[in-house]
Amino acid sequence: MLNCEQLQQAEPSLNVDKNLTPSSLGREELVPSRYAVRVGEIEVLVVSDGVLPLPSAMMAYNVDPAVRASWLDDMFLPADAFDWPLNVVVVRSGGRTILIDAGLGLDPDLHLPRAGQLIKRLNAAGIDLASVTDVVLTHMHMDHIGGLLVDGVKDRLRPDLRIHVSAAEVQFWDSPDFARTSMPPGFPDALRSAAARFMKVYGKHLRPFTEEHEVAPGVVVCRTGGHTPGHSVVRLASRGERLTFAGDAVFAVGFDHPDWHNGFEHDPEEAARVRVRLLQELAANSELLVATHMPFPSVGRVAIDGDVFRFVPAFWDY
Rank of each mutant, 00 (worst) to 15 (best):
L122P: 03
A125N: 02
A125C: 06
I127N: 00
I127D: 09
D128Y: 05
D128V: 00
D128H: 04
V132S: 07
T133P: 11
T133D: 15
D134M: 08
V135A: 14
L137H: 09
L137V: 09
L137P: 04
T138I: 11
T138V: 07
H139D: 14
H141A: 13
D143Q: 11
H144R: 08
H144Q: 15
G146P: 01
G146S: 00
G146E: 10
G147K: 08
L148P: 02
L149M: 02
L149F: 01
V150S: 02
D151C: 09
D151L: 14
G152Y: 00
V153S: 00
D155E: 14
R156P: 04
R156S: 06
R156Q: 10
L157C: 06
L157H: 05
R158N: 05
D160L: 03
D160G: 02
I163G: 01
I163D: 01
I163A: 01
I163K: 03
H164A: 05
H164L: 05
S166I: 01
S166G: 03
A167L: 15
A167D: 11
A168D: 15
E169D: 06
V170N: 05
V170G: 08
V170C: 11
Q171A: 15
Q171G: 10
F172N: 03
F172A: 15
D174P: 15
S175W: 12
S175T: 10
S175G: 09
S175Y: 10
P176A: 01
P176N: 00
D177E: 15
D177A: 14
S182R: 12
S182T: 10
S182P: 07
S182I: 08
S182W: 15
M183K: 15
P184F: 15
P184L: 13
P184W: 11
D189A: 13
A190T: 06
A190Q: 02
L191N: 14
R192F: 08
R192E: 10
S193G: 12
S193C: 14
A194S: 14
A194M: 03
A194R: 06
A196L: 11
R197I: 07
F198I: 11
F198C: 10
K200G: 10
Y202E: 01
Y202K: 03
Y202Q: 02
G203L: 01
K204L: 12
H205D: 11
R207D: 08
P208N: 06
F209I: 13
E211M: 14
E212G: 03
E212L: 13
E212A: 11
H213I: 10
E214T: 13
V215G: 02
A216N: 02
G218Q: 01
V219K: 07
V220K: 14
V220M: 09
V221I: 04
R223C: 02
R223L: 12
T224M: 07
G226S: 11
H227M: 13
T228R: 10
T228M: 11
T228Y: 07
T228I: 07
T228V: 09
P229G: 12
G230I: 00
H231P: 10
